[in-house]
Simulated assay, not measured.
Amino acid sequence: MQDKPTNTTIKYNKKNSGRITIKDVAVDIGVSLMTVSRALHSPNLVSKKNLLRIQASIKKLGYLPNRLAGSLSGASTKQIAVLIPSISNAVFSSMLNGLTEILEPAGFQILLGNFRYNLDIAENQAIAFLGWMPDAIVMVGTLPPLAREIAKKNNVPVVEILELLDNPLDINVGISHEQAGYASGDYLISCGYKNFNIITAKLNVDIRAAQRIKGFTQRLEQEKLAQPKIYEIDVRSSIISGRTGMQKIIQTGKLPDVVFCTNDNTAFGVLSACNEAKISVPETMGIMGFNGLDIALYSYPQITTTKVDMYNMGIKAGETIIARLTEKTIPLKRIETNFSIVPGATTKNIIK
């Protein structure tokens, strides 16, 4: 006798999924559901004794708050979406360090997106993050158009960071990269340099590099100096792109007085190629970078650079987000941070 075939399909029931709920926490320590809910969302309304008991039970049971449910009820999700163009560039890790130093003690977690200098990817990531109802969104550069519209309609605070924008959507923290490029050119002119080359990332991709070069060349024009030969090497700045750019310069058979790099990683690559080719720096040719990264400040010889305080940008962005979310007055929606020239050993001294 053959066994009758049986239906082995099991219907999944979310109610019986085994997920730990606040009811389990309440039963575990003998308090009401309301008390546990208050401990999660408004801990200041719960006695210290009960709060400690609830926190201990949550840890013991492994309870995970349902952030999506909180967002549907209009409560804070305690999530901040952050979109950066590169996870390999130390510029952005410094900004993230400042941001998290302010946000994490206040109970916020960061959702990180790496859009790889592709604004289409940035827009898709921003829209996906907005679907999770973050308390705010931080974008390096300008938030793409559709994401801007969605954020505006849903009243999500937006911080556009790193560069000063003409028409920011909401909060803007950064520097004028054009002014920083101008200051870099001014410094090199004051050192007596007259013949310049520039090595940079692709200017149609790295908008801030293009702004720096615009300011740099404006300063050269004022002195009626020849415009620099510009080498666009890759979509992002790197040590390899610096080496590649310098090798191209060497192949021309004519070295400039100085090479200005729109990133310190690139400048380090140039220095490496010069050492390999036995080009004396700064006696034969000078090198200047941009951003003030550790790779420039602690290289040997130390690379002259324009330092941008990215850590402070992150701090300012975090403070402004918390002020906005706690409905405090924000004195400035457009916050300009500082940059400074850091003379190193890869350029000549200023001519007095």
Rank of each mutant, 00 (worst) to 15 (best):
A147Y: 01
A147G: 05
V342D: 03
K153D: 15
I20P: 07
A75W: 04
R67Y: 09
T142K: 13
S86V: 11
L130C: 08
P85A: 00
A277R: 14
A210V: 01
S176A: 02
L164E: 04
K14T: 15
K333L: 09
V258H: 09
D28H: 15
I321S: 03
T337S: 03
E223H: 15
Q125L: 15
T266W: 03
G292I: 04
N118E: 10
E104F: 09
V36E: 07
R208T: 06
V235E: 13
D206W: 08
T329A: 07
N197V: 00
T347Y: 05
G344I: 03
K202F: 15
E101W: 10
V270A: 00
R148V: 02
I84M: 08
V270C: 06
D135G: 04
I102K: 12
L297K: 10
F339Q: 00
I250D: 02
N44A: 15
L143C: 03
I198R: 01
K14E: 14
T266P: 09
G181A: 05
N66Q: 07
N195L: 00
Y117C: 05
P144S: 09
P256F: 00
L83C: 11
P168W: 07
N7I: 07
I127T: 13
K153C: 06
Q79H: 04
F129V: 07
D234L: 07
G74P: 12
D3A: 12
Y300R: 08
A180M: 11
D257T: 05
L96Q: 02
A210Q: 12
F196L: 10
S299Y: 04
K202R: 15
L119C: 09
L169R: 03
A147T: 02
G74L: 13
P343M: 08
Q179P: 09
L164K: 14
A69C: 13
F216N: 04
V270K: 02
T305Q: 05
I80C: 05
A106H: 10
L165S: 08
L64C: 13
K248E: 15
I121R: 12
I121A: 10
G253A: 06
Q55R: 10
M285T: 06
A323E: 05
I350H: 07
L52G: 02
S42A: 15
L297Q: 03
V259L: 01
R236Y: 13
A136K: 00
I279L: 10
L165Q: 10
T6N: 12
L99R: 04
N44H: 14
N155S: 06
G174R: 04
I175E: 11
C261D: 03
E221A: 14
D170M: 07
L225C: 12
T21S: 15
L164H: 05
T6E: 14
N265G: 08
L164R: 11
F129T: 04
N338G: 06
I29L: 14
R208I: 09
T35A: 14
T305A: 02
D24E: 15
P282N: 06
R148D: 03
N7M: 10
H177F: 14
N275C: 04
I137L: 13
G286R: 00
N124A: 11
I29W: 05
L103I: 01
